[in-house]
Design a protein around this nucleic acid. Structure first.
Length: 905
DNA sequence: GAGTTTGAAACT
DNA sequence: CAGTTTCAAACTC
């Protein structure tokens, strides 16, 4: 990381060429893959983010990804930066950038040449006005630091608003561009804000040292970076804008990166907009900060996407990629935004206006949330089932601590809390918003509206899982989070995870932050913390070790049940109700009666399941005994509802494998950063997935099937997808038309990674990046026999990108239609699957057991399908839901996906 | 705020 | 794989 930082800092100019080349090299393969081609054909969207997809996939596994991502991210970031510069700036401009990254002022002038330049110039002016900050801004130049910052960024982001601001800027960049142009004063204000943020960052950075105590390096490094940046920083005013926050070391790094990105964006437009955004939404920035940790994973994905960024025409996209590291939220946003950016950059001004307003308002927050989702896959997972993703909330919490108002935070949290589905929605929303049109924004709003209930529904009190949300809302000021064990311990009121590790150096699963795949933040009161971007290598190594011992160590612990899906049908908050989720491994409570937070199940707001070995279980969310009953109940419901055979099958499956149900969410939760990607993929692939689901249903129908277990993983994916789809549907419905492009982008993402390596996706979902890799390799092995699973996953991926968008657009209104479409797709796709498992069941009428769930999923599915192919109907969608129930399969899923893809193709 | 309890994670 | 120890959070006072 260090080396990368130096390189980046020293040579923003030099890097570009290599970076561009790298990114190109990365992206091409993905795009070339049959999947990508297929997707590209399906959707106009360019396969910009193949890399993202991969990351996202990896990220799905999540936490691990975050850590892992950083490295890649750094490289990617560099690339992104380069791209950013290049793409944004014409060749001449790029030369200037290279030459005068130092000439930040000149650079801006050049930028001014382009229409965007106006905004950039404005920004520059603001920067100049903020000369004091310029030194800091120059640091941005420290974009070099960005590489290191990928990992650090998250942390920094948490601490520093600047980073978040930058990210938000990126997200909103499109909108911001115009707005920025219109609002020079705003820029100045923003800068002032940034300065403030810097100060805060500085504080944060200080706080870190305190926490780290043992980690003097961090500060020094950051400081060194800062100094370097400053030295070099004179070169780049553009960055300076972005970098004003650099004052704080870590934060600075992130900020610098972000700023750099932004600066690059300025060249293009994105920067300005971004800045504007950040400025407009200090809150958003804060939120982003919170997200930053998670962002690591997302960053990677984003970076990848940026690299892939075939569509990256917009510098903003590149920026995102570069920025992504800074903050998970940003990353999330970026993911969505990237796609959006590409489009939006084109649309930019009109969009910017929309965004500025929207962002300032609700959308920004919502956007930020999505990003948050990605990083803390684990937490998210937990939360997801619950109805709220811990990760998301956590991130939001951090943000809250930083500055965000409670209301805003609540909004963020809500979005986050939405869980995987929410994530999807958020991502969708973000995408939609980023997509450029006001419509997207509206969608976001709709999300927000929708989400709040969900949030309410999902109380998140789990340490890791999420619980923090509620508390987060309450406590925005994390003022002394570190010191306070209890508060800081699991999660701050903000929802961000905090730890007080003393002996483990935050490199063991004892550390909630580490377990969640996020870096410790300033908020943490840990001692001798190595779970920081500075120690990315160490973190990654440790993670790998842990994963080697337990591949699912970083996978979400809580998996949703079918019930969740049912709830989804209703679209009620119930979807997120904890009851639907289950702890993968269960608890071993002996004295807590599962009524205290000692119990992971209780903490996650999920009922105990057969997996639990608890004694005297009194879990209010569901007792072990009850859990066993649930299948029957479900089956009864299914009979009553007479949904399709799917429900019954699901029920059977459930009865057979209770775990499976819970595990479904794992994929979602896998990792916050990646999740968004995964979600996208899922969404996009939803159609295929649905098709897969039927197959699952079939297989499930014969739950006893030897593949039952295998199926589970796939099903879980499907379930996740469904949930995602639902969320997306909400957000996207309106946007669909616009989304289509977004969808394409999403598809691109998925294509990038998934298509070429569907397994990668699975891997990501599985949990750890390593696991992912393993899964990729092993997937065939794992599910060699079960073509269904693989096919299912592949299908998902294939269709997902495109369909999701459509779903979003159609979702609510057309939910039925979309469902139909899904069914169609499923049917189309399923044939093989059905053949494999049990064609008869194909008509999984989702609902049987849990009509509500079933229906919602259908709706989602419908949306997805509708988008791509008119939804066919709930029947299959329902099936999907049922199928999805199963478990994690994160590792396997990828394999499945590949297989599926192959089969399809 | 200090100390105790608790159960997961880590270790043997 | 089981038992023990370690750890940090949750909880109590």
């Amino acid at each position: 990381m260090d080396s990368p930082k130096t390189t980046t800092t020293t040579t923003t100019t030099t890097i570009p060429a290599t970076a561009t080349t790298v990114s190109l090299s990365d992206s091409p393969p993905v795009q070339e893959s049959p999947f990508s081609n297929y997707i590209s054909n399906l959707s106009p969207i360019k396969p910009v983010n193949t890399a993202h997809v991969a990351h996202g996939l990896l990220g799905i596994n999540s936490p691990p990804l975050v850590f892992k991502s950083p490295h890649t991210a750094s490289d990617r970031q560099i690339n992104l930066l380069r791209r950013f510069q290049y793409p944004q700036i014409s060749g001449a401009e790029t030369s200037k950038i290279n030459d005068g990254s130092k000439k930040s002022v000149d650079g801006p002038e050049d930028m001014g040449r382009s229409s965007i330049c106006l905004t950039s110039s404005l920004i520059v002016d603001a920067q100049t006005s903020d000369n004091v900050n310029n030194s800091e801004q120059d640091q941005p130049g420290s974009s070099s630091g960005c590489v290191d910052e990928y990992l650090s960024d998250p942390v920094d982001a948490d601490c520093a608003d600047s980073v978040n601001l930058v990210n938000p800027n990126v997200k909103k960049s499109d909108d911001a561009l115009q707005s920025s142009e219109s609002n020079l004063t705003n820029y100045k204000i923003v800068e002032s804000d940034d300065i403030n943020d810097k100060g805060t960052k500085g504080e944060v950075s200080q706080a870190r040292p305190e926490q780290d105590g043992d980690d003097p390096k961090e500060q020094p490094t950051s400081e060194n970076k800062m100094e370097k940046i400053k030295e070099e920083g004179s070169l780049t005013k553009q960055p300076s804008h972005v970098c004003p926050n650099f004052g704080s070391d870590l934060l600075v790094d992130h900020a610098s990166r972000q700023q750099c990105y932004t600066s690059g964006a300025q060249v293009a437009h994105p920067h300005e907009p971004i800045q504007l955004v950040t400025y407009n939404g200090s809150e958003a920035s804060q939120l982003q900060r919170g997200m930053s940790r998670r962002c690591l994973q997302f960053e990677q994905a984003q970076q990848e996407t940026t690299k892939d960024g075939t569509y990256s025409p917009n510098p903003a996209i590149n920026l995102f990629g570069s920025i992504s590291p800074a903050s998970s939220t940003e990353l999330e946003i970026l993911d969505s935004s990237q796609v959006e950016l590409t489009i939006s950059s084109l649309k930019e001004q009109t969009m910017t206006a929309m965004f500025s307003a929207n962002i300032s308002g609700k959308s920004p927050v919502a956007v930020s949330k999505p990003s948050g989702i990605g990083l803390h896959l684990n937490s998210i997972v937990n939360t997801l089932p619950m109805g709220s993703g811990a990760s998301g909330p956590i991130m939001s919490h951090h943000l809250v601590e930083n500055k965000i108002s409670c209301s805003k935070l609540s909004n963020l949290v809500e979005r986050v809390s939405l869980t995987a589905g929410d994530r999807v929605l958020q991502t969708k929303a973000s995408l939609a918003t980023s997509s450029t049109t006001s419509e997207s924004f509206h969608n976001m709003e709709s999300f927000n509206n929708l989400q709040p209930p969900e949030h309410q529904v999902t109380p998140h009190n789990k340490r890791r899982f999420s619980s923090e949300h509620a508390g987060n809302f309450e406590e925005f000021s994390p003022s002394s989070p570190k010191k306070k064990r209890k508060k800081a311990s699991s999660t701050d009121g903000d929802g961000c995870k905090r730890c007080n590790c003393r002996k483990t150096k935050c490199l063991k699963l004892y550390c909630d932050c580490f377990a969640a795949g996020i870096y410790c933040a300033a908020i943490c009161a840990c001692q001798g913390c190595f779970n920081r971007p500075e120690y990315e290598d160490t973190v990654l190594e440790t993670r790998q070790q842990i994963e080697s011992r337990n591949p699912l160590a970083f996978a979400p612990r809580i998996v949703q049940h079918v019930t969740e899906f049912q709830a989804i049908d209703v679209e009620d908050v119930d979807l997120f109700t904890p009851y639907s989720g289950r702890h993968k491994t269960g608890c071993n409570c002996k004295r807590s009666m599962c009524v205290k937070k000692y119990c992971e199940c209780y903490q996650a707001n999920v009922g105990c399941s057969n997996a639990c070995r608890c004694e005297g279980c009194r879990n209010i969310h569901g007792r072990k005994e009850e859990y066993a009953m649930t299948p029957e109940i479900v089956s009864n419901r299914a009979n009553e509802e007479s949904l399709e055979g799917m429900a019954d099958e699901k029920l059977e499956m459930v009865a057979n494998n209770k775990f499976l149900h819970a595990e479904l969410y794992d994929l979602r939760s896998l990792t916050p950063p990646t999740p968004s990607f995964e979600y996208f993929r899922y969404v996009l692939s939803s159609e295929s997935d649905f098709s897969m689901l039927p197959s699952y249903a079939k297989s499930v129908s014969s739950p006893s099937n030897s593949h039952g277990n295998d199926m589970l993983p796939k099903t879980s994916k499907t379930l996740d997808i469904v949930s995602h789809g639902q969320e997306l549907d909400y957000n996207i419905t309106e946007i669909t038309g616009q989304f289509s492009p977004q969808c394409d982008e999403l598809a691109d993402f998925s294509d990038h990674t998934p298509l070429p390596n569907p397994s990668s996706i699975m891997m990501a979902s599985s949990a750890s990046s390593k696991t992912q890799d393993k899964a990729n390799v092993s997937q065939p092995q794992v599910y060699p026999g079960s073509a269904r699973l693989s096919s299912g996953s592949s299908l998902r991926w294939h269709s997902s990108p495109i369909t999701p968008m459509t779903r979003l657009g159609e979702t609510k209104n057309q939910s039925q239609d979309s469902d139909c479409g899904l069914y169609d797709i499923l049917e189309d796709d399923t044939p093989e699957m059905l053949k494999d498992s049990s064609a008869p069941i194909t008509s999984v009428k989702t609902s049987s057991p849990n009509k509500k769930r079933v229906s919602p999923p259908h709706s989602h599915i419908r949306e997805f399908q509708s988008s791509s192919s008119a939804g066919l109907k709930s029947g299959r969608g329902r099936k999907f839901i049922l199928k999805s129930v199963p478990s994690f399969p994160p590792l396997t899923p990828c394999r499945d996906s590949k297989d599926c893809t192959q089969q399809k193709y």
